[in-house]
């Protein structure tokens, strides 16, 4: 079966985001951008399934600006076979992305769609569930472990309180959690090889999807800042503070 993996180009997780002074958003000019960490995990999982012979082809998809090509090339260098860039300079919300992926799934007929659980820029945690909904397929969200058993997918999920295992009828959608795997680094030869792997460029209109935003962002502001407090000299002083707080 084919695996379809979504990858988003986001601000690198090591960068501290800065709110723009005019309150319209976060400053992304000259900021290091990378693949969303959860999507690296998604790509890795698809490649591992291919290495196991469960998956036949790994197709990666990104919705975003022309520069998202770099993100797709990274996925190809990790071992994905083919990429689709749905090019747009507009910010596309999870619902719009899900509609585009639905249309791509209609063409590609993947047995498995893997997304990250959350993009670390919008922190929405929606897209995978929405894809599953629109396709009428089951969803294994926050996956900690997955395995294909016949025509089912067994997914161990990270939930509040512990872990839950569900069995899904394939085709299915999975969203990755941090412990699913540790993504590999692309080797230099593979980075070179990735340059000649196929990358198709499309637009949302090619899929007949209206990506006009449904949420109006009225303002983006700073969170309340926390002032650094005091340092105490030793444990005795800390005990004193805990007593003041009434917890000791």
């Amino acid at each position: 079966m084919k695996a379809l993996v979504t990858v988003k180009r986001v601000i690198d997780y090591n960068v501290k985001p800065r709110v723009k002074a005019d309150g319209t958003g976060v400053d992304l000019a000259n900021v290091k951008m990378s693949m969303n960490p959860f999507d690296e995990i998604a790509v890795e999982e698809a490649i591992r399934l291919k290495e196991k012979g469960v998956v036949s082809e790994v197709v990666v998809v990104s919705v975003g600006p022309a520069k998202a090509q770099e993100t797709l090339r990274t996925a190809l260098a990790m071992g994905a076979d083919r990429a689709i860039l749905v090019s747009t300079d507009d910010e596309v919300e999870p619902l719009g992305v899900a509609k585009i992926v639905k249309a791509i799934a209609a063409e590609e007929a993947p047995g498995l769609i893997i997304t990250g659980k959350q993009a670390i820029d919008d922190d929405a945690n929606q897209t995978g569930q929405m894809i599953a909904a629109l396709l009428g397929r089951p969803q294994g969200t926050f996956a900690n472990e997955i395995s294909v058993e016949g025509d089912s997918l067994v997914v161990k999920r990270e939930i509040d309180g512990g872990l839950e295992t569900v069995k899904l009828a394939l085709p299915a959608v999975v969203t990755t959690d941090l412990r699913l795997n540790e993504p590999r680094y692309a080797s230099l030869p593979n980075i070179m090889k990735a340059k000649s792997k196929p990358l198709a460029t499309k637009s949302p209109a090619d899929y007949g999807v209206d990506v006009a935003p449904r949420l109006k962002t009225l303002k983006v502001g700073e969170p309340p800042v926390r002032q650094a407090g005091i340092k105490v000299a030793d444990v005795d002083a800390l005990v004193g503070k805990l007593k003041e707080l009434g917890v000791a």
Partner: peptide, 19 residues
């Protein structure tokens, strides 16, 4: 919660609503 995050987007997409 993990339950809410699992269910609500599926509801939203079926209603054609952005959560």
């Amino acid at each position: 919660t993990t339950t809410g995050k699992n269910i609500a987007p599926r509801v939203a997409a079926l209603l054609d609503v952005m959560q």
